[in-house]
Amino acid sequence: MGDWLVPALLTIITASTPLVFAAVGEVVVEKSGVLNLGIEGMMIVGAISAFAVGVTTGSATLAIFAGAIGGAAVAFIFGFLTLNLLANQVAAGLALTIFGLGFSALLGHGFVGKTFPGLPKLEIPIISEIPFIGPLLFGHDILVYGSVIIVISTTYMLNKTRVGLLIRAVGENHDAAHSIGYSVNKIRMACVLFGGAMAGLGGAYLSLAYTPLWVEGMTSGRGWIALALVVFASWKAWRAFLGAYLFGGITIIQLHAQGFGVEIAPEFLSMLPYLATIVVLVLISRDSSRAKLNAPACLGRSFHEAG
């Protein structure tokens, strides 16, 4: 059993990790009442920033930081437009995606065909060699562990800390939060930057570990799937984690199905993640009471001091 199961599960982990980062970041953004549709753009800028720095310096650590900073930098453009200039969030998010795809292709022009050795694996002698559990729990790269830590700490932060309470307050009722003296837009900007950094890390994982190459448009819709995952997870970080693994699993089934002799055109299998997203969205939206109860009340609404 272990022959194919362990490698399959390992590939599910690598396919899911980018989605975990992006979706958890967006959970925090949306909790603060901001709808950022530009995840795809932030991810791809993160991917090229990380790859460019990784190839140039040879340092995986610097590359990871560059990914987060790249994502946060373009998220700042979105934040400035929607929070300071009160632009329509849907349009600004779309602009971010279009800009990000073009900008990354421009930056990446000189990096096509280069390779990166990948992220170092954190092996622990002896324990890593325990059959089945060893390779599943140990021997991953730092970003895989990072994604799990981010999920746990974000869940804790949103539910148990004062910062989390503030984020939820500006997302549920920005006027009330403002009237008791909190700066709604500063809190939201911090969340947007966090979301950008997380999406950037997701992108960095793609270009540093998943396929350590630069390919134009290599995020191929993962940012949008992450957006759907946030609804799927009804704005809870740990559920976004489960959702990301569900979708990672579907992606891998699609890759392995042909190996098992399934006689079907590869295109139909490649449709699976997208079709699954639609099915999941339909299932959630049918249960409208649940979706509405959990959605932050101010989601997508700009805040202006004078009303």
Binding site: I77, L81, L85, L86, A87, N88, A91, A92, L94, A95, L96, I98, F99, G100, L101, G102, F103, S104, A105, L106, H109, E216
Partner: peptide
Amino acid sequence: PNAVTGVFQGMLLFFLLACDV
């Protein structure tokens, strides 16, 4: 690189949204 096209298009929409304020 002809990706410059996408950069111009994205910037145009960014500036438009900014001016629309």
